[in-house]
Design a protein around this nucleic acid. Structure first.
Ligand code: MN
Ligand code: MN
Ligand code: ZN
Ligand code: ZN
Lengths: 149, 149
DNA sequence: TCCTATTTAGTAATAATTACTATTTACCAT
DNA sequence: ATGGTAAATAGTAATTATTACTAAATAGGA
């Protein structure tokens, strides 16, 4: 469901961000793809029409697109790999601020029924659920210096 | 549920891997922690008792621990960030071999009920579910050159 | 059209991970 | 127990993704 140029412009401007041809081109490349592209993918694609494009702009734009709510990053909530020796079925609560990871035991989540269609497409090895939010420590701190906007 | 030295040794040897003091020390540091430690965390901890320890060995050992099924990596199934402009509620099937990410629409997964206890601990912003396995292309290829063991 | 804060491009710096190689070591066969 | 050998380790270098910095360009309001 690709947004129109005017819709994207409106979204940017309502958030006080400038609407640039690079930003729109990157949005179109992302929204027009089914591949869940990487930064590098988007850079290569958009560079054809914008030869001076820099990686920096792609990173920057992806942050903006997320900020205005028309894109999202898939599953990289920590900045580095984290490990667990606990092989019992459980899930994780990830704090977006301090990167703390806490265990969550919840039987109802363990046995997620996959639709037969998915099972047909993929040989599923397992699944992970991560809830993300703010831990009790960070909840308080976030509320204190809450930025206006 | 920390495994004993003998249990760990057995696991390694059954998989044809050598049992070393570094490997056991790293396992103990990981299994003895509730912090879901990073590579760097484990390196710092274990280096106290094994001053010559190298980062490489930590990486290596974490792979081995995963291979023999007594540890796992949390939520880094892609090697780089991937993005999505599709803001409709949906989930993802991630191919472990070719890193392809396909969409999965499944109403029953969208509204995961969190236990009140978790809600109390965290201010939850959202959640992600990723199913991992092998896509139709890779299913075939994996079966072909299946290694004996 | 002009002004200015924002954005971009280009480059450098950082951080995590992977690759390489000489030395050491676990463990099997003797 | 000893020795041989393939595997593992330590140390270092290379690679890759991401972030930081700064001068030049530009979007959008006055
Ligand atoms: Mn855990
Ligand atoms: Mn998607
Ligand atoms: Zn926190
Ligand atoms: Zn695949």
């Amino acid at each position: 469901m690709q947004l129109t140029l005017e819709q994207v412009r409106k979204q940017f401007q309502e958030c006080g961000l400038k609407f640039t041809s690079q930003r729109y081109a990157i949005y179109r490349a992302l929204a027009g793809s089914k591949e869940h592209p990487s930064v590098e993918d988007l850079y290569s694609t958009v560079k054809k029409a914008h030869p001076t494009l820099s990686m920096n702009t792609v990173y920057n734009t992806l942050e903006s697109l997320q900020a205005i709510g028309i894109a999202s990053e898939i599953s990289l909530w920590h900045d580095k790999a984290r490990f667990d020796a606990n092989q019992a079925p459980h899930h994780h609560l990830v704090c977006l601020r301090c990167k703390k990871i806490e265990d969550l035991y919840d039987d109802t989540l363990d046995s997620l029924a996959l639709s037969p269609k998915a099972k047909q497409r993929y040989r599923i090895i397992g699944h992970r659920i991560e809830f993300h939010g703010y831990c009790s420590d960070c909840k308080a701190k976030i509320n204190k210096h809450k930025k206006r906007r």
